[in-house]
Design a protein around this nucleic acid. Sequence first.
DNA 1: GATGAATGAGCTTTCATTCAT
DNA 2: CATGAATGAAAGCTCATTCAT
Lengths: 197, 197, 197, 197
Amino acid sequence: MQYKKDELRDTILAESEKEFLKKGYRNASLRQIAKRSGMTIGNVYHYFDSKEALFNELVKHEHDAFIYILNHHSDRELMSNTSQSVDLTVWKRSLRSFLAEFKPIFTNRFLIMLDMSEGTKYEHTKGEFVKFLNAHFLEHLKNQPIVFSPKFGELISKQLIEGVITILRTITDENERLDMMTDLFLFYILGIMGMAK
Amino acid sequence: MQYKKDELRDTILAESEKEFLKKGYRNASLRQIAKRSGMTIGNVYHYFDSKEALFNELVKHEHDAFIYILNHHSDRELMSNTSQSVDLTVWKRSLRSFLAEFKPIFTNRFLIMLDMSEGTKYEHTKGEFVKFLNAHFLEHLKNQPIVFSPKFGELISKQLIEGVITILRTITDENERLDMMTDLFLFYILGIMGMAK
Amino acid sequence: MQYKKDELRDTILAESEKEFLKKGYRNASLRQIAKRSGMTIGNVYHYFDSKEALFNELVKHEHDAFIYILNHHSDRELMSNTSQSVDLTVWKRSLRSFLAEFKPIFTNRFLIMLDMSEGTKYEHTKGEFVKFLNAHFLEHLKNQPIVFSPKFGELISKQLIEGVITILRTITDENERLDMMTDLFLFYILGIMGMAK
Amino acid sequence: MQYKKDELRDTILAESEKEFLKKGYRNASLRQIAKRSGMTIGNVYHYFDSKEALFNELVKHEHDAFIYILNHHSDRELMSNTSQSVDLTVWKRSLRSFLAEFKPIFTNRFLIMLDMSEGTKYEHTKGEFVKFLNAHFLEHLKNQPIVFSPKFGELISKQLIEGVITILRTITDENERLDMMTDLFLFYILGIMGMAK
DNA sequence: GATGAATGAGCTTTCATTCAT
DNA sequence: CATGAATGAAAGCTCATTCAT
């Protein structure tokens, strides 16, 4: 029984994932999800209290993991490895292993939370992510002469995250994803360094 | 009479602009637009044939101007001024005057056309813009050893346009907009040059 | 002025004729009529008080003429010419000249009144026409043994009128119309005579 | 549960039947149907996907049966029984038993399909029925000198079907219906034979 | 005479949600 | 556990009609 229950629950979550990813929270249809899950809409409400509850359930783990990483991660290692080097390939290797840590949260549900959550309590997560990244940039640059405005820094941070989202959305192969993200981060770092000169 | 008509028409267009900008074409509500414009829905239909017709009317000029610029603009001057220089300030000045040409189309309606038009015939404009920009990048880099994959090039192009959109969305002052865009373009050029080394 | 006024009035009536003939009273659109007439809807109301008033105006003359014929026409001549004959061509000639009298009311407006007037005060005209025709049949048959039920008589009458309507609707050439109607009436007379045997 | 569902479904279908029969597909109102069925419109959509789906459901069986009869029926028996006879009562008996075969499809829903289906995929059924009947007439007359034009033949076929429709619309008693249709067909056969002489 | 602005009620349809069984 | 009946609000849209100018 419990098995079956969990199975159905997972089916609903899986179909929700597709629906939310395609249409976003607001335009997703519970009717569609129920139909695709092979059950009645009433039964969906048996497992989840509301559309928003279903959404929250879908991205809960991703959000927790995401918050945990934001609070606990350290990029000191990255910095120590790379700060003095001028060799691109060294940078690349370090960046790649750094980004590999994030692999577990690079899921569709993470993507949904960041980019398809308008109308839910998660709709501001992307913005917070941007702020976090921006704070990091500032910290790394605090000993250097600031060469761009705070607003521009926010813009760059937002761009970087939008890039990550685009990669998650368009590339499915894990290694290709990592390669692309590595290049993307490298690209942004080079841009920043270029402007700092 | 004619005056009043034009006035109300403009009121509807102005309220539509807000509504489309906030919710996008699909989720925008004609009832809301009507209420905000101080009239009944029926009267909105007196001015515009349909929701899509209203949308088209809203972005028509922007789209025309946009297409014109895409087809007629030349960046040769930009290139000749800057290709040999290594001075950032020279680059900046050239870029800024180049981007200033686009000022007339940097409006909320242009933003709506690019970013809030899902469900209309304009929904592919952003994608075409990305392709256009990408083709330009490739042309400028054709004599240099290509240092990133086509996919990465597309990503960068997309990023740049998303950046433009973000600037349009968050900054209202025209000069500040131009400054920010100049920096953004410079940033991307520096990134590309950095990776080419 | 008066000329112009009448002209416009006639334009509206002409466009109404097309619209009512195509869609019937209920589904006809005053907007369409106004647009086709090259004027605003308000102006249509300047000439006619309402949709129904416009309709009434359109078919008024036809209705009057129709009623007049119903009340004054005599088919004695037809009878005297034909009752003793067994020659089809004689019948045909008589019938044709008899039906030719009705030519003036065989118009599109007559057709509209009979067949496209649901929702107006004319919607029962067809039924009254049927009753009238049925009464005539009965009169002509009163000296003969009645060979079918009153209900069947009504049915035949209705059929005949539906036939006339079909002819008016599908044939535009006046002579061809008359030929066809002559054949139709002949056909019905032969049917009745056949059943009387 | 299932019972109640079927019950309400049938209620909706029954009320739809009345509404479509009175106003035709296009002018029928789902609001009215819902109100008459004692429920909200939303719930009507719980049972049927759309107005057209409801209509199709209503006439589906009738249409299938109708098509089957058109494709499989044979009137050879009718012909062999009657062709040489001149006795009206013999004809009548044969025609009556022939028409009795059609009893199952002589329903209000058949009537709706034929005559109230403008705007649905069934709107051409009546025309096809006319063509079918006309082709039959021609076949039966192929060894005789043709005495009327093709157009007149079509007219007669249309008339016959309009007569069937009128009978279905005005007479509810099954036997009376059959009697009336028998007389109607006889009447038309006599008319044709009369003109052939 | 003529314009066209404005209304209010109607239409079909979709939706999230509730609840008795 | 699960069904599916039912609701009420909202959507885009069309219509005949009224009326100030």
